[in-house]
Measured scan of single mutants.
Amino acid sequence: TVKFKYKGEEKQVDISKIKKVWRVGKMISFTYDEGGGKTGRGAVSEKDAPKELLQ
Rank of each mutant, 00 (worst) to 15 (best):
K47C: 07
G35V: 08
Y32G: 00
G25A: 04
Y32L: 01
R41C: 11
V21E: 00
K38E: 10
T39I: 15
G40T: 05
G42S: 03
I18K: 00
F4H: 02
T1L: 12
D14I: 07
K38H: 10
T39Q: 08
E10K: 08
A43K: 13
V2L: 14
K20M: 12
W22N: 03
R41W: 14
K47I: 12
K38F: 09
G36Y: 10
Q12K: 08
T39Y: 11
I18G: 00
D48S: 09
G36H: 12
E34C: 07
E34M: 14
K51D: 12
G37P: 03
G40A: 10
E34K: 12
K51L: 15
Q12Y: 13
Q12S: 13
K5V: 13
K20T: 11
G35Y: 05
Y32W: 10
W22H: 04
V13R: 01
G25E: 03
E9T: 10
G35P: 09
L54D: 02
G40W: 05
K5E: 08
K7R: 13
R41K: 10
V21G: 02
K20V: 10
F30M: 01
S16T: 11
V24D: 12
L53Y: 02
G25P: 02
V44G: 00
W22Y: 07
E9K: 14
K17M: 11
Q55H: 12
Q55Y: 10
D33C: 04
Q55N: 13
V13N: 00
V21H: 04
I18Q: 00
T1I: 15
Q12N: 09
D14F: 12
T1P: 08
A49S: 05
K19F: 14
V44E: 00
T31D: 06
D33Q: 06
K17S: 12
T1M: 15
K20Y: 12
V24S: 14
K17G: 04
L54G: 03
G8L: 05
R41L: 08
E52I: 11
G8S: 05
G25T: 02
E9Y: 11
Q12T: 15
Q55I: 15
S29R: 15
E10S: 11
G37T: 05
K7L: 09
E10G: 05
E9C: 06
E34H: 05
F30A: 00
K38D: 05
K11E: 02
G40K: 07
P50N: 04
I28V: 08
V24T: 15
G25N: 07
K20F: 09
D48E: 12
F4K: 00
V24P: 02
R41H: 14
T31W: 09
K47M: 15
K7N: 12
T39H: 08
R23I: 10
I18A: 02
L53M: 07
K17E: 06
K51T: 13
K11D: 02
D14H: 12
D48G: 07
V44P: 00
T31E: 09
E34D: 14
R41F: 12
K17I: 06
P50R: 03
E10M: 13
K26L: 10
Y6N: 06
T1E: 07
M27K: 07
V2G: 01
K19V: 12
E9R: 09
S29A: 15
G37W: 03
L54Y: 06
K20H: 11
G37D: 06
K51G: 09
K5L: 13
S29F: 15
D14G: 07
I28K: 00
G25W: 04
M27I: 13
I18E: 00
E52L: 10
A43G: 07
F4A: 02
V13M: 04
L54W: 09
M27Y: 14
W22I: 06
F30C: 00
I15Q: 03
V21S: 06
E9A: 12
V13L: 06
F4W: 14
K7H: 13
W22M: 05
E46M: 12
I18W: 01
G25K: 05
G8A: 05
K19Q: 12
S16E: 09
